[in-house]
């Protein structure tokens, strides 16, 4: 079930006994088992676990991209657009830039989808690219970018939309160490600048250590959160 209300609530997203499975019968795959959690404004969370533990599914449920099989997801602190929450920026694991749009149009797209006028959307997109040192690539095609550049453009796309909640699904999964560190730096700087909450799913301990809270997932279950003295 999906519900939500508007209002300046500190709780941005709350999951209560969320269960998500795919398929039926012998081939059923349970991705989330009675998961309950809450993300507040400004909170920085790392969701860790092995591949297939349900990290991505949890983030997709939080983003409203997937509907739970049972349980409730609410976004008290966010404005709903239809049945999905506004103010959520998602950084995907795999390269998610649209190949038929150039870098500037890719960054501007979420703004246009949110009914921001085209001129203002483009200005904000270029400003976001400049902020991340990518201003010179505004007219480039996605296939011309390196992996790190592509992920930074994806971050610029999030930055330009100024979300209250950033969900990053394995943002450094396909990057080398140095590039991964650079991307995490940008990510943390971005959310700090926005004052946004951040949830990062990762199986990289180095990335997880840089966030305040650790949630561990195993076999679809979420263990109790651990607050770490995160070193940025």
């Amino acid at each position: 079930m999906v519900t939500g209300v508007t209002g300046p609530d500190p709780v941005l997203v709350e999951c209560r006994d969320v269960h998500r499975s795919f398929g039926r019968g012998p081939t059923e795959v349970v991705a989330l088992r009675e998961v309950s959690c809450r993300v507040n404004r400004g909170q920085h969370v790392a969701v860790t676990g092995e591949s297939g533990s349900g990290k991505s599914t949890l983030l997709h449920v939080m983003a409203g991209l997937e509907v739970p099989s049972s349980g409730v997801v609410t976004w008290p602190g966010l404005v709903l657009r239809g049945d999905r929450p506004g103010g959520v920026g998602v950084v995907f694991q795999a390269p998610s830039l649209l190949p038929m749009l150039d870098v500037a149009d890719n960054v501007a797209l979420p703004l246009l989808l949110a009914d921001v006028p085209a001129g203002a959307a483009r200005d904000r997109a270029l400003a976001a690219l400049d902020r991340l040192g990518l201003g010179g690539l505004s007219g480039a095609a996605p296939e011309e970018l390196s992996g790190g550049q592509g992920q930074r453009v994806a971050l610029a796309r999030v930055l330009a939309a100024e979300p209250a909640l950033v969900l990053a699904d394995e943002p450094t999964g396909q990057l080398d160490r140095r590039t991964a560190d650079s991307v995490v730096d940008v990510l943390l700087d971005t959310v700090d600048a926005l004052g946004a909450a951040l949830v990062v799913s990762t199986h990289d301990p180095a990335v997880a250590d840089r966030l305040d809270e650790h949630w561990s997932m195993a076999d679809g279950r979420l263990s109790a959160p651990v607050v770490s003295g995160a070193a940025r």
């Binding site: 239809g82 999905r84 998602v90 998610s96 649209l98 038929m100 979420p110 989808l113 949110a114 796309r157």
Partner: peptide, 15 residues
Amino acid sequence: RTFAVIRALGARGRQ
């Protein structure tokens, strides 16, 4: 996949 990304970025049905 491209169209799925567009929807994931917040596109409504008509968009």
